[in-house]
C-alpha cells in the first residue's frame, strides 16, 4: 500500500520540488538518543489537508509545495516531531516564517529562527522548518535545537530575502512584527482590513506589514509590478475603505485614529491606526523619498 502511495505521489512531483529521497536526506536518522520512529510521511499540495485542517491554508497561501513529517522517539522521553515545508521559493519560506514570528527568543539556526516552549521554527533557502516537542526540558531543548541545526546544515544554501524588506528602515518597527505576504488572507490574519481583496494582492505583488515603534500603528507597504496596477489597487482601497475621504487618502476612523494612504510609483503605502494624522503623513513622506 505504501509503495502505491509513493508511486502516486512521485507522479505528482512538481518540477521545482525536491523528490522524496532528496527531502528525506534533510533529516538525520538520530539525534542525542532520539531515533526516527517511523518512515517519513510526505504531503504534496492540497494533500496537506490530510495532515492538518484549516491551518494548511496558511501554507498554501505562501505557495507550499511539499511537506515532510518525521517523528523521533527515545525511551522514556517525549516524541520529537519535525515538519519540513518545501515552499518552492525562498520568498515563500521567508513569508511562512514571518507569519509565525514573534513567539519567542531568536536563535542562530538557518537564516532566522525562534525557539520557545519546545517549538523551533526557522527558514533557510526555500524551506520552512518546525521542530517540536510537547514538554520541554533541558535535554529536550538541546535535542530540538541540535536537530534544527542538522537540518539547516543539510539544506545547505541560503536564499535571498525579498528586496522589499531591505527598503524599510529597520529602526522604524519592532522586527518581530514584520510579516511578508502576497495574499490578502494573510494580511487579514495579522491586521484585518476587508473581506474582499481590496489591495489586489496576488503572486506578482510583495507586501510587508509592520507595527511601528512610534505609536504601535501598522504600516502596510505593497510593491506592484507596475504603477498602473498600484493605481488600480489604491483606487479600490480608498473607494471601499474611506469613501468619505473623496480621494484625499486620509480619514479619521471610528476608533479616533487615523488611516493614511498614498501611492508612489509602483508602491501603495498605508498607515493604519496612527495616533495623529501628522505622524502618519510624515512617515509616508519619508518613505516616498527612500523608495526606489
Amino acid at each position: 500500500m505504501s509503495s502505491i502511495l509513493l508511486l502516486l505521489s512521485l507522479a505528482m512531483t512538481p518540477s521545482d520540488t525536491l523528490n522524496y529521497s532528496a527531502m528525506q536526506r534533510l533529516v538525520p536518522g538520530s539525534i542525542r538518543g532520539w531515533q526516527t520512529s517511523e518512515p517519513a510521511r510526505f504531503y504534496s499540495g492540497r494533500e496537506i489537508f490530510r495532515y492538518m485542517n484549516g491551518a494548511g491554508e496558511v501554507y498554501l497561501a505562501y505557495g507550499f509545495n511539499r511537506l515532510l513529517v518525521q517523528r523521533y522517539a527515545c525511551p522514556n522521553r517525549e516524541e520529537i516531531l519535525v515538519e519540513i515545508f518545501d515552499m518552492g521559493l525562498p520568498r515563500n519560506a521567508f513569508g511562512a516564517y514571518t507569519n509565525m514570528q514573534g513567539r519567542g527568543p531568536v536563535v542562530a539556526i538557518g537564516q532566522a529562527a525562534e525557539y520557545k516552549s519546545g517549538l523551533l521554527s526557522f527558514w533557510r533557502g526555500r524551506f520552512f522548518v518546525c521542530v517540536m516537542i510537547d514538554n520541554e526540558n533541558e535535554e529536550a531543548t538541546k535535542a530540538v535545537l541540535d536537530l534544527g541545526s542538522r537540518i539547516s546544515e543539510s539544506i545547505g544554501e541560503d536564499g535571498p530575502t525579498p528586496s522589499l524588506v531591505r527598503v524599510l528602515p529597520q529602526e522604524l518597527f519592532e522586527p518581530q512584527t514584520l510579516r511578508y505576504f502576497f495574499r490578502h488572507e494573510i494580511l487579514n490574519i495579522h491586521f484585518y482590513v476587508a473581506d474582499k481583496n481590496v489591495f489586489r494582492l496576488n503572486e506578482s505583488t510583495d507586501a510587508l506589514l509592520v507595527q511601528l515603534k512610534i505609536d504601535k500603528s501598522h504600516l502596510l507597504l505593497i510593491q506592484y509590478p507596475s504603477s498602473e496596477e498600484a493605481a488600480a489597487a489604491y483606487a479600490d482601497f480608498t473607494t471601499s475603505y474611506m469613501p468619505e475621504a473623496q480621494g484625499k487618502g486620509w480619514i479619521q476612523t471610528e476608533n479616533k485614529k487615523w488611516t493614511v494612504c498614498r501611492m508612489h510609483q509602483r508602491y501603495v503605502l498605508v498607515v493604519f491606526d496612527a495616533v495623529t494624522q501628522a505622524d502618519a503623513q510624515n512617515l509616508l513622506a519619508t518613505l516616498q523619498r527612500i523608495l526606489p
Binding site: 491586521f191 476587508a194 475603505y241 471610528e254 476608533n255
Partner: peptide, 17 residues
C-alpha cells in the same frame, strides 16, 4: 471592485456602538 466589502471599519463601528 463593485461588490460591497466588509471592512475593518464596520467592526470599528460595532465596537463604538
Amino acid at each position: 471592485m463593485s461588490e460591497s466589502s466588509m471592512t475593518r471599519r464596520d467592526f470599528l463601528r460595532t465596537t463604538a456602538a
